[in-house]
Computed example of a mutant assay.
Amino acid sequence: MARPPTAAQQRLIRAADPVTGRLRGTENQLMALVRLRLAFRHPRPPHDWFLTPAGHVWRERPADEPAPAPAPEPAAERPAAPSGVFAARVGGEPSGDGGPARAREVHSAWLGLLEMRRMTHPDGATDRPCAWERTHLIPAAALALEAAGCRPADPDHDGYRVTGTAQPEAVAVYAPDPAALLACAAALEAAGWQVGEHTEPRRSGGRRYLLASPRRV
C-alpha cells in the first residue's frame, strides 16, 4: 500500500502545470512521485515528467483537506491502483463517500487520464486508451465507469463489478440488470473501449456480462 505524499512532494504536485500536469523537480524527487504512482515520465524526448490521474486528484485537493484512507484490496486479481490514496472503485469495496468530495476526485482523475492520453499518443488523441490503461485494465475500466456516473457494487447496493479475464487485454464487467449493463457498455464505448456482450456457460450461472478491451485506433 503506497503512503501519502510528503509535504514536500505535495508542494511539487501543487506546482505542476494546471493544464498539462507537467512537473519540475530533481530526478530523485520526481522518481519518488513515480513510485507513489502520482507521476510518470513521458516515453518520448525530452522525457518530461507529468502527473498521473491520481496525481491530478492530489493537485486539486484543498490543502487543508485530509487524505482519505486507502480502500482495501478486495480481490487478488485486482492490479495496482493509480495511487495509494485514490482508487477507482471496481465493485465490492466497503461503502464509501459517494458525495461531492468523491465526485471531485473522480472528475479530477478522469481529466488527468485524458491529459495522459493526449500527452502519450503521437497524434494527441484523447478518444482512445493509452498505454497506462492497457497495463492497468481493471482500474482504467472502473475509472471510466465511475466517471460516467455508473454505480459500483458495495455491501449495501448492487452495482457494476470489474474483474480480470484470461484474455491479456480484456476485462469483464458485471451489472445487476440489463439496463445497468447497457449503461456500462455505453460508458466504456464513449471512453474508447471495445465492448461485446456475452453469456456465461449455464454451469457458471448463465449471467450476462461485458467483455471490454481498450481500443487502439
Rank of each mutant, 00 (worst) to 15 (best):
P66N: 03
L137W: 00
Y160D: 01
D48F: 05
A2C: 05
G92E: 09
H198T: 09
M119C: 13
A32E: 06
A125Y: 11
E146S: 05
P66K: 03
E169D: 10
A180P: 05
V162S: 03
H198M: 14
A32H: 03
P155V: 10
A75M: 13
P94N: 11
I138K: 02
P18H: 15
A67K: 07
R128W: 13
T126E: 15
L145V: 12
A166Y: 05
R208F: 12
G112A: 12
A148T: 09
H121E: 13
E200D: 14
A153H: 07
T199N: 15
P122L: 15
V34H: 08
V173Q: 14
R44K: 12
L111K: 10
T52L: 05
T6M: 03
G25E: 00
G96H: 06
P178Q: 08
G205S: 14
G25C: 07
R22Y: 05
P46W: 01
V173G: 03
G96R: 05
G112M: 01
G196M: 08
E73A: 06
R215V: 09
A7T: 04
R41H: 13
R3M: 09
A32I: 01
W132H: 05
S204Y: 14
V106I: 11
T163C: 06
R117G: 00
L143I: 08
Y209E: 06
Y160T: 00
R11N: 03
V90S: 10
T6Q: 01
D154T: 11
L38C: 06
V34D: 11
V106A: 08
P66F: 01
C150Q: 04
L114D: 12
P53R: 05
R215H: 10
E105H: 08
F86W: 06
R22N: 09
Y160L: 01
T6A: 09
T165W: 02
M119V: 12
R202N: 09
A75P: 07
F40W: 10
G124I: 09
E197K: 13
I13A: 00
T126K: 12
R202H: 14
S95D: 07
P82T: 00
R216S: 10
E197W: 11
G164P: 02
A147V: 05
G196F: 04
V85W: 10
V195S: 02
T52G: 06
M116R: 07
P53F: 06
W193R: 05
G96E: 02
A190R: 15
R117Y: 11
H47C: 10
Q9R: 00
A67E: 15
A185W: 02
R35E: 15
A87S: 14
A186F: 11
P100F: 06
G99I: 01
D48Q: 09
R208G: 12
F50Y: 13
L143M: 11
Q194H: 11
Y160K: 00
P129K: 12
G159T: 02
G205H: 11
P74S: 04
R89L: 12
P82Y: 00
A75S: 03
G124C: 13
G124F: 08
L36R: 01
P18A: 14
L181C: 07
H136E: 12
P18L: 06
L182Q: 07
